[in-house]
Design a protein around this nucleic acid. Structure first.
Length: 110
DNA sequence: ATTATGACCTATA
DNA sequence: CTATAGGCCATAA
């Protein structure tokens, strides 16, 4: 698998996440076929921001607990603010209501 | 080629 | 319930 393939898939999935919905690294990784490669998803997103800036809804990707683990890679609280604007509920300061807003990537290609 | 690191996840204790 | 340990795959040095 070439690097671009993996990244492209991540880009594709991320850009298909509907507003007001969130998904997890594990879900994306599993959807890509590498269940244990969840870390790579975050890595890819980090690279994505460095390369494409904030043109992709990377803020809609959280860990399986709904925590905004990547907030540090966004300027200020832009990640949390964007999610709030889209109507995502928060159970904690930096934790979204994952159970009510979860979006499974496989639902897209259904 | 080898080692270290990471926006994670799951299994055990 | 919380805490610790290991695995996992792609990248960077």
């Amino acid at each position: 698998m070439k690097r671009e393939d993996f990244y492209h898939k991540v880009y594709d999935v991320v850009s298909e996440i509907p507003p007001g919905r969130v998904t997890t690294y594990g879900a994306i990784a599993g959807y890509l076929g590498v269940r244990s490669g969840a870390r790579m998803v975050g890595y890819a997103l980090n690279n994505l921001i460095s390369k494409e800036g904030e043109n992709y809804p990377a803020h809609r990707v959280v860990n399986r607990l709904g925590q905004l683990t990547g907030r540090a890679y966004f300027p200020g609280d832009s990640m949390r603010e964007r999610l709030e604007q889209e109507g995502v509920e928060f159970t904690e300061e930096y934790t979204v209501d994952i159970e009510n807003h979860f979006w499974d990537p496989s639902l897209n290609l259904k």
